[in-house]
């Protein structure tokens, strides 16, 4: 039986709006197994990013629970959730969020510095991660010198360098052209296969959906559909 690494039970998330409240997620019951390449899809405002943020322990549920890698998110202190993200979760953002004053190498190295790994270990791991994304020759470049596709590949390397169990990718192809988007997705799919890393996407990009094995559709904060699908593109 596969290991469930994400479990949400009756998860509700409300945000205060004016005098009232806005329900972003309502009664979400989902589970994701290790090694899945899944996506949360749906229109803007459907709650995709909110769900991803809760799973990434950047936020916590108002009601119900979210358990990630055995940790109940609402029970974690700031320090514990930082530790969880640092050791086990990789993030890929829509706008890459690379640290502008660091080189490509230093951006990727950052997560390992937080893990207090030795310099030799860091160098080896960073070069390996850059090799995965085909940027080993750009290690000394600053993010401002990279194209959009290259920037996102650095972000993937940064998320993958620590070999996390879970990678959360929020609209990773939104700022990329089709060619770059496919390249990025192929890279992620390969890493998913080779390292058995769980990938969870938040997206409404058809190109991304073509690579996913499972599509969870959110509509107004509720699960509308949860389908296992045959990806159009295999790696």
């Amino acid at each position: 039986m596969s290991e469930k690494i994400i479990i949400t039970e009756n998860l509700v998330k409300r945000f205060p709006v004016g005098d009232g409240e806005f329900t972003a997620l309502n009664n979400i019951n989902l589970s994701f197994e290790k090694g899945e390449f899944s996506g949360i899809i749906g229109p803007s405002g459907s709650g995709k990013t909110t769900l991803l943020n809760i799973i990434g322990s950047l936020d916590s549920p108002t009601e119900g629970s979210a358990t990630v890698l055995g940790h109940r998110i609402s029970d974690l202190s700031h320090k514990e959730s930082a530790f969880l993200r640092n050791m086990h979760i990789g993030f890929i953002f829509q706008v890459y969020n690379l640290l502008p004053v660091y080189t490509v190498f230093e951006n990727v190295e950052f997560a390992l510095i937080l893990q207090k790994r030795s310099a030799t270990e860091r160098k080896k791991a960073v070069m390996q991660a850059l090799e995965w994304v085909g940027l080993e020759n750009m290690a000394d470049k600053k993010p401002s010198k990279l194209s959009g596709g290259e920037g996102q590949r650095v972000a993937i390397a940064r998320a993958m360098v620590k070999r996390p169990e879970l990678v959360l990718a929020d609209e990773p192809t939104a700022n990329l052209d089709a060619k770059n988007a496919h390249a990025i997705l192929k890279t992620m799919k390969t890493l998913n296969k080779e390292l058995n890393t769980t990938f969870l996407f938040s997206t409404h990009d058809e190109k991304v959906m073509d690579y996913l094995n499972r599509l969870v559709r959110l509509e107004d904060g509720e699960v509308d559909k949860d389908d296992i699908v045959q990806p159009k593109y295999m790696v």
């Binding site: 950047l58 700031h78 930082a82 953002f93 969020n97 502008p100 937080l114």
Partner: peptide
């Protein structure tokens, strides 16, 4: 701000 958010997402505590 985005950089601060990124630091936290990458695993830094707020006090770090």
């Amino acid at each position: 701000q985005k950089e601060i958010g990124t630091y936290i997402a990458l695993g830094m505590t707020r006090w770090q």
